[in-house]
Simulated assay, not measured.
Amino acid sequence: MADKKKAGAFDIRVVIALLIGIYGVVLTILGIVEKQSEVDKAAGININLWGGIGMLVFTALFVLWARLRPIAVPVEEDATEQ
């Protein structure tokens, strides 16, 4: 009978969340320190700030998904371990 092992950090959802999270943090910081003249060029909407917050929310949802529904990888037993 094959046991199951969780994928853990090797789950692709965690890798994607990490990459999007890094970009989200950078954009959020850029949005916080943005000059008002730059915000005015985008019709008064701080696109960097809102984009960064959106990416951080996306990251949180991906991590939550990976934690609540982990990928189970079947593990074969060795014939010598019986």
Rank of each mutant, 00 (worst) to 15 (best):
V33T: 14
F58L: 07
I20A: 05
V33F: 12
A7R: 12
I12E: 03
A66G: 01
L61R: 05
G8N: 14
A60F: 14
R69H: 00
G44W: 08
D78Q: 10
I45P: 11
R13N: 05
I53T: 03
A9P: 14
I53G: 00
A9W: 15
K6M: 12
G44R: 12
Q36D: 07
E81T: 04
F62W: 15
I22M: 07
I32V: 14
M55V: 00
V63E: 06
I20G: 02
S37P: 02
G31Q: 06
I71D: 01
L68A: 02
G52K: 09
R67Y: 03
A42E: 09
E81I: 03
I12H: 04
I32G: 01
E34I: 10
G8S: 13
Y23K: 07
I20W: 04
R13F: 01
V75D: 13
A9V: 13
S37W: 12
G21R: 07
A60T: 11
I47T: 15
N48D: 14
K5N: 10
K6A: 06
A7M: 10
L49A: 12
L68T: 08
T28K: 12
L19Q: 07
L49W: 15
R67T: 01
Y23Q: 11
P70T: 00
E76M: 09
L64Y: 10
F62M: 15
F10P: 01
D40L: 06
F10N: 11
K41F: 09
V25I: 12
I12T: 07
L19V: 12
I47A: 15
F10E: 08
I12N: 01
N46G: 11
I16F: 08
L61K: 08
A2Y: 06
L27Q: 10
A66N: 05
A72Q: 12
E34Q: 09
R67M: 02
P70C: 02
V25F: 05
V25Y: 03
V14W: 07
I16C: 04
K6G: 02
P74V: 00
A17Q: 10
I29E: 00
I20M: 07
A17V: 12
E81G: 00
A9T: 14
E76W: 14
E34S: 09
G54W: 09
D78E: 11
F58M: 06
A60I: 09
L19A: 09
I45S: 11
L64I: 07
G21Q: 05
G8D: 13
Q82C: 03
Q36I: 04
I16T: 10
K35M: 02
I32F: 14
D11N: 08
W50Y: 15
G54N: 03
P70V: 00
E81Y: 06
S37V: 09
E77S: 11
L64K: 11
D78G: 08
N48H: 14
V57L: 04
P70H: 04
E38W: 05
G24V: 00
I22Q: 03
L27F: 13
V15N: 00
I22D: 01
G31C: 02
A9K: 15
E76A: 11
L19T: 11
I32W: 14
Q36K: 06
G44N: 10
E81D: 08
K35E: 03
I71T: 09
L56F: 06
G24S: 03
V75T: 14
